[in-house]
Nucleic acid binder design. Structure first.
Lengths: 194, 194, 194, 194
DNA sequence: GATGAATGAGACTTCATTCAT
DNA sequence: AATGAATGAAGTCTCATTCAT
């Protein structure tokens, strides 16, 4: 990759980070292209040099975050540790991401209200892949006898629902540190599984 | 209340039900006043006879649903049954509402992105009140020795997060009936509490 | 049709006439929705109450003019007169329309540069129908021995091309009156046919 | 002219040919500077090294085509042949150009919708000069007794209108070859003149 | 009470043009 | 000479809201 290309790639990522921030703060519909551009001291026209339109921009935000998260999850999956430990790590990491990327994770809630057909399929698929990580840990735990769960899908839904929800109430000024929250969530949700 | 007033009140409620429906289907931002009016075979102008503006309309939707739910919750609270049974009933009922009123419950997720200051305070307060129901059941259960939970707030967050999340993935054509889902959720979440 | 509906229909037609005017003056691409609205002392938003979008507006302009013209042409066709007389009348009338509705007729020149697939088919079809009027007169004239033309299609193309072109150079302040122009065109083009 | 200058001149002409092509295909308003540059594997910024702006670029396109055509027409004019033969050649050649340079010829239709005052005068003048070629042939033919036409201007308008119009319906896949079309047009239009 | 019509603010998007490198 | 990047003006369209009837 040439210097130029690397610069452009960097810029694209900068935009994505900024956009994530603004969208998280205001919500997708309330975040205008102008807002996003202003955050970067750009003009909205410039955004269109890098991204086809607002949806595309959002799609890339989502993709970036999800891809990074997925990589980490796979690393967790491949470690030689107990299923319980894996689940603990997965829950903690998922909480981290959910807290950091509030809206981006949240807006995936109803992708069909935001994304056109062009992206919808891929998004749903990637999300499913991500969710599967939890399925696999549960499966593994059950087969190893660590977990005693019959309704694996539902257990996964409960875990993801509970953890995704933190974005709703979480505030940096809250009583608990992020680590503490992660600790408690992991402990309680594991209690449900064993 | 005069006949006229009762008629108007009835109409208002009709509008609220319709609005809830449309908003649940399309999301707040995608549901136009026209959409809502169309559902009732009205024109959008008429809506303004009953409600000051879109926000007001939404606010009343939210209020209606929450008030009804609250009434039911208080009834549950006041029964002479074990805390576990209460929690089971509360979870099941909350799931019912969440499934039925998808978006309305969901949009409360980030009220500050939708509501102006005028309503925000009251909304936050009412939601807190509702959430407190779960706190009270947990408290009661702990003091009666039915539950063994140290982090009561977090436990409540997990329960509400998990249950609110059903709207995201629930589909009427899904594999499980609503009753089955409620059953499993209650069982698993209780397992976490005891 | 109720009074309301008639009023609305009238308004729609007013808009179409105004739009035709503005578009004729400035050309389709240079005529903004604001321009068109201003001509009617409206705001651009209002136009969208009557027409879905700019293309739709243009499509209706075109349709209105062509339908009216077609009606007249059919009347000419059905008269009991010589083919030469028919052609004379058709040419004169076509010139009248072309002069009056400059741009609208002209923009049909390359419909595919303006219209989406939705309308393109119908437009092409209607235009073909209109052009066919001339074919039928020529056919009739040839079979009656009034015209001596082998390449009927080409003759029609020449006639339509020549007459459509008047919009390009015609000016109300020109040396010749419209009637005079029509007279000459009809005479010369008939000379070509006989 | 230095090598550098000749190189630049060549490049300018390349750009003009490409621009003509793209504009012919898409129409002036739909052809973006980017489209034109892409055809040449350039970037749009570079176009501005050679031409002040889009209008200038178009103006030069027009000028190039018209100048070349004019040269050929003068050659025709100066030959020692009958006026009918001259007219035949002029019509055929004009058709050739019109078919080849579709849009460029067509967009001249309403120069005032595209060109600023700076260029408008010159354009109108050059076009008049070109049109005059036909006037001169007609004049000559009339004075030599080959043509019997009273309204010379109108006859010229008919000829130019008819021939310019071919761009509207002409398609490379059409039934008739270009030569055949030219043959027929020339024959029929001459029939009108004699 | 209801509605058809109108409004205007604001959003997204396009694109000719500029300019530093 | 060329280009990648940025800009800003302008245009289309949406929609909550208002209001006369």
């Amino acid at each position: 990759m040439s210097l130029r290309e690397r610069k452009a790639a960097k810029k694209k990522e900068d935009i994505l980070r900024s956009a994530s921030l603004v969208i998280s703060r205001k919500g997708y519909h309330n975040a205008t292209m102008e807002d996003i551009a202003a955050e970067l001291l750009m003009t909205k026209g410039s955004l269109y040099y890098y991204f086809k339109n607002k949806e595309e921009l959002l799609y890339r935000c989502h993709d970036l975050i999800l891809s990074e998260a997925m990589k980490k999850m796979e690393e967790i999956l491949s470690q030689e540790i107990s299923s319980a430990k894996k689940m603990e790590m997965a829950i903690k990491f998922h909480l981290e991401v959910a807290i950091r990327e509030k809206e981006i994770f949240n807006l995936i809630v109803k992708p069909e209200q935001i994304f056109s057909k062009e992206h919808l399929g891929e998004i749903v698929e990637k999300r499913a892949e991500y969710a599967e990580v939890f399925d696999r840990i549960i499966d593994e735990g059950v087969s190893k006898g660590e977990f005693s769960i019959e309704q694996k899908k539902m257990a996964r839904m409960i875990i993801l629902g509970a953890t995704n929800w933190v974005q709703v109430w979480h505030s940096p000024e809250g009583e608990y540190s992020n680590e503490k929250i992660e600790e408690i969530y992991a402990a309680y949700l594991l209690k449900m599984l064993v």
